[in-house]
Structure formats: C-alpha cells, structure tokens
Nucleic acid binder design. Structure first.
Lengths: 168, 168
DNA sequence: CACTTATTGAAAATGGTTATCATTATTATT
DNA sequence: AATAATAATGATAACCATTTTCAATAAGTG
C-alpha cells in the first residue's frame, strides 16, 4: 500500500473551511491531494450511509452514480480517508473490511460494537457514552504522552454470544 | 465457516479439571470435541508464544514439530478456539488475522493496543488496567443485560500515528 | 472387533485487496 | 490560453489469506 503523507492540523469538522468547499476538501488541499469526482462520490456515499459499508458496497453505489469509477479507486480513496482519520476501518471477522465516517453530521453518533462470535452479528451501541468518554479521554492522554503517539481515534468491542446463539 | 456448538460452563482456568488432563481438554470434552494431536500442538504453540501470531506462524511451528499437520487444521483449530473463547482473534489491518490465548498463565497479561495507521506498528500496553477494569466491568454488565448478550471478552484499540510517523 | 462419527490434510477454489502500467485529468508555469 | 509537470484513474492481472471439497484416517462406542 502506498503511504500518504499527512500534515496534521485542523479537525475534520464541518464549517471550518477557508476555501468555501465542503469541510473535507480543505483537508485534501492541506495535504496536497486533489479534489476529484471519484473522491467526491465516495465521500457522498459515506455521508448518506448510516451503516458500516464494505469497499464493494461503496463501489456498487459509486459505479451506479458514475459508471466510470473503478473498484481500485474506491479502495484507494477509502484507504486514504482512513489514514487521514476521516474514515474508520473495521474488521469484524467476516473477511471483508468495513468503513464508516468518523464524524458524520447526518449520520450515526460515535458508537462501539458488540460482536457475536458465532453468527457474526454486530450490534452498535452508544449508551454509556458519558462514562466511556471520561475513561477514553483519560487513557488517551496517558497513552499519547507515554508512547509519543498521536491518537486520532479508538474502538471498543465486546465479544461473546448474542441472544440467539447463547441458547444453543 | 462451520459453526460449532458451544456448551457454556466452566472458565478456561488451569487446574479446574475433573479428568486429569490440561484445563482445555475438559473444555473440549464438554462440547463433544476430541482431543487430538494437532490440537494439542496448536495449543502448546500458543502457550509458548508471548505474541500475536498469524495462522501461518502457527502452521510453520506446528509443521516443524509434526510434519503431518496441515495448514487447514491450524485454521480450523484456531477458529474453534476463538469460538470457545480460549483464543482471541485480532485484525490489525495488515491483511492477516492474529491469534492469542486469552488466559495464558505463562504469557502476557491482558492488554490493549495502540495501532499506527501509517506503518501498522502495534504497541501492546497494559498500564492503567485498574481504571480499565472498572470501566469495562461496569459497561459489560450494562450491555449484557440490555442486549441479552453473553460477553466473554473485549478489545480496546487506539488508532493514530506513532512517534516515527507523526513527524512526517 | 465392528460401527458410527469426528477429524484430518492435500489440493483446488474463493474472494478481498494490491500492484502494474498506460491513459487521463488536474494543477502549475509560461 | 497553451504547455509542462505531476497526481489520479481504471482495467487487468497478480497476490495471498482463508475456505471448501472430499477421500482417507483416527477416535470414541457398543
């Protein structure tokens, strides 16, 4: 995978722009990346989708909107967005990665996951976020200091057996 | 993937046995699975390894100890152990899954991960476990009640850029 | 011992993801 | 505007971890 070089700076928050475009376009300009049609389409799709989507999911939709968009570009764009911290990449163990906007103004709030080890069902939960925020914030501070790590995101997952599967 | 059926019961704690074998052998008996040579080898290897290993890593070692052991069986065994909650499966985004014993008496303590989005470096950390335990315990209780979920394990990961990569 | 069922491993198939490379689009420069 | 320099694209092929298939073998049972 080609590694992109990221200049750190503003958060990916809507409305922080200086050039009038959508918030993410500034992020692109800042790192010297171009704002192109395929990239716009991919981000639009992520915006509209209130779910974890696979690369193929995105490709199918993108291709429907603009048949000239190829699967490779979808992968590249998702990868780039992940490295920029705009998208979070998940692997739930079913062989394909899932992607999700980190801050989707129109979409789901930040959440964590409950994953069934048997049927692979995923439950998103966003309760108890106050407690989590406190905990995460504290830990994140300590870790970034101790390891000189620039932390941009986190994931919490619980594994086990869902209501169905636990009865077996 | 074939789904195995798991009878719940004892924890995978050493020395809780009733048939004299190693602790995990009872777990196997309990679910009607056979204790075979390849399975013993795989578990032995996991015991000896103080690290996250890939299926291929395990296969190479297993094959060295007993050349008749095939890669397929390694995959199957790791998968089975994961579903039994004896092994935890991780995906750090480099295309191959990693496995680790959940309770390794001779190995590493429970820990969480710091993952570099650029170079994919993994840092294991186990500091602040007291705070984490408190937080995890509370959340786990709430979640298992609310979602009728039988939680057996969890993972916390922080994403960002490591000391090296953040300077770019 | 005979029987039933689980386990195994070699090989082939699958399928998500990446690398290649010639073409095209975008930005910078004149 | 025209041109040069560079980044982005997409079709195809390659890659490689993981699964499936299936006949052979081993383990528990009566």
């Amino acid at each position: 995978m080609k590694i992109i070089f990221i200049k750190k700076g503003e958060d990916n928050v809507r409305g922080k722009g200086h050039r009038g475009g959508a918030w993410w376009q500034n992020r692109f300009h800042d790192i010297g990346a171009r704002v192109t049609a395929p990239r716009e389409v991919v981000i639009d799709i992520l915006h509209e989708t209130d779910d974890h989507v696979s690369a193929t999911d995105v490709y199918v939709k993108a291709h429907a909107m603009n048949p000239s968009i190829g699967l490779t570009t979808v992968y590249r764009t998702l990868d780039m967005l992940t490295q920029m911290g705009i998208v979070q990449k998940f692997d739930f163990g079913d062989g394909k990665a899932r992607y999700e906007l980190v801050n989707n103004p129109d979409g789901k709030k930040h959440h964590h996951h409950l994953i069934c080890l048997r049927c692979k069902a995923i439950i998103d939960y966003s309760e108890f976020l106050d407690d989590e925020l406190e905990f995460i914030g504290k830990t994140q501070n300590r870790l970034s200091k101790k390891y000189n790590f620039d932390i941009t995101d986190h994931a919490i997952s619980f594994y086990g057996f869902c209501d169905q599967c636990k009865r077996v």
